[in-house]
Nucleic acid binder design. Structure first.
Lengths: 328, 328
DNA sequence: GTGAAAGCGCTAACAG
DNA sequence: CTGTTAGCGCTTTCAC
């Protein structure tokens, strides 16, 4: 069905290379006559010939594709992030092959393998835990890698992230400033470094102000099944609790649903979320949050990766994007 | 860096084809000795050899990739939908190449071209308007196509969608049943068939009950810039308006933000949204909606496309998924 | 049982 | 200026 360059050449009575050169805008350099060039171009246009990208990539060694590995493409953080990334790469002539790990390391490894097999020219990765070996593998294949959102401390790669300590500290300070004396932290049970950092900042804060820490760790893998129940039970036992800091927006949403008062218009205490959400500002009460600036985050990842692709792999560097406390 | 099959063969003192046959589990059929087979397998495992997917696809004509084209991967409808699709295809050994059109037909055409060049084995598409010619082009390339969410009526392709008329009618009935006598419709200005169908159902409803229709069409391309302002102005002029039906959830969210009362806890009238949203049930008041069941939608698209891929292109068929009115 | 050889569609020297 | 040629890495047929 689809024509090949060979057929085009035959039908035009020229050689394959002539057609190839014209198509790839190298006619000038090969000093092909303007007239022949436009004849070829016209014919190619007419029959709608499109080169087979697979063959082209195989021959050139360039796939024009980059891989983006996130935790969950359907999530309100990664989805919009992915859109920015896609847009930015599109402008540069690259395509994006996405995949979601769902927090499962085996998934992540499979995804990385197949991306490597597909010869992506670079990878942007939000790693799961235990992915150090595979991050090294990517690097060994000489494929540029940018890690974002969370990092495996042991692996030396470019790393784009926000300042989790400072941000979580800001969150705690804010809760204190609005009168919370005894607020708790709700996080997940995984060892993701960014979650550990947020928890660490909370613990430090408690230490500084002599607050007794109250921490609930929810099981990431069974959040839907058990989260609500666990949170309710836990909260019921926390006498004197006067605020809650959620380390991510989906936890905060879970919290809002679980702790919703039956017939009142307001929750009994302030809640603050890490990561914004499009509806946080119209809830009642409004939900303050630590906002990760998606666009700068995406732009930085793309910029760093493009540089690696174009100029070769360079020494790993860390890029810190600062967050904003949104008071509502 | 990455080894080729040729190197593996040399290092093993066998021929390329032997290695290839073993890797592809065709050792038996080629009557290769068990002993040799396990020797090859062991070596391949040891050095971590992975075949170049590009070369493989070129040789076999199978890319094991399918294309998914949505409007906006960052959106709360398409994002989770994409996740389901990805998961379902992953199980079948396919990868998904996504892209967002952002409602722009030129983007859509570029995306389709490049997917065709990459030799995807099938495409799931949420079309923009004016995409008929390109849908035909896909079919002419003998690439299986499943259209969902919206359809270009003229093109005969497999089409998975919800029943927009019936659903919108349900929505209107519900508003009436809770006492709205004079509710309006807020939609976008594009000619997407599903939007037209929803509007049509509203007009029919008004006709039946002798209600004077009040419709606001917001400019899709400039929603962020002008939407809030336009909606506010429009609503202010609608004397006696006692309810609002939004044809999509992002419009409803815009409405909730635009019409938020300054210092009251409730909106002045009920709002109902087409498409659910994770926070609609904790808003005050809660937002009722027409819920499109994402998982069945995704499952159907995948099932239909897989059948086309495996059994060849068949006569176009329409698959209708029914929606649910969620009263809140 | 195994390996040589042709070919998938394209690019990129290098002759002419 | 144009065409021939030799791959890119893999699959697959067909002699040996």
């Amino acid at each position: 069905m689809a024509k090949s360059i060979k057929e085009i050449a035959q039908e035009l009575n020229v050689s394959k290379s002539t057609v190839s050169l014209v198509i790839n805008h190298k006619a000038e350099r090969a000093r092909i006559s303007k007239e022949l060039e436009s004849r070829v171009l016209a014919y190619v246009e007419k029959v709608g010939y499109k080169p087979n990208a697979l063959a082209k990539s195989l021959a050139t060694g360039r796939s024009n594709t980059i891989g983006l590995i996130v935790e969950n493409i359907g999530d309100s953080f990664f989805g919009p992030f992915a859109l920015y990334v896609e847009e930015l790469f599109r402008k540069k002539g690259y395509h994006v092959l996405y995949s979601s790990t769902l927090g499962d390391s085996q998934n992540a490894r499979d995804i990385i393998d197949s991306m490597l097999e597909k010869k992506v020219e670079g990878i942007i990765l939000a790693p799961t835990v235990d992915l150090e070996a595979y991050q090294r593998k990517i690097l060994e294949h000489r494929v540029p890698l940018v890690v974002f959102d969370r990092n495996s401390p042991a692996v030396e790669t470019h790393y784009v992230h926000i300042d989790n300590d400072v941000s979580a500290k800001k969150a705690c300070d804010h809760l204190k400033s609005i009168g919370c004396q005894d607020f708790g932290l709700v996080t997940i049970d995984s060892d993701q470094p960014q979650m550990l950092a947020r928890k660490g900042a909370y613990l430090d804060f408690c230490d500084t102000y002599g607050i007794e820490p109250r921490i609930l760790q929810l099981p990431y893998q069974e959040l839907k099944k058990k989260g609500t129940h666990m949170l309710k039970n836990w909260a019921a036992k926390q006498a004197g609790l006067d605020g809650l800091f959620f380390t991510t927006n989906y936890l905060c949403i879970l919290g809002l649903k679980a702790l919703r008062p039956a017939d009142e218009n307001h929750y009994s205490f302030p809640m603050l979320s890490f990561d914004d959400h499009e509806l946080f500002d119209i809830l009642n009460p409004k939900i303050s949050c630590i906002q990760q600036p998606l666009e700068p985050l995406a732009k930085t990842c793309v910029k760093v990766l493009l540089k690696e692709i174009e100029q070769g792999i360079s020494a790993p560097k860390e890029y810190i994007i600062s967050t904003k406390l949104i008071r509502r």
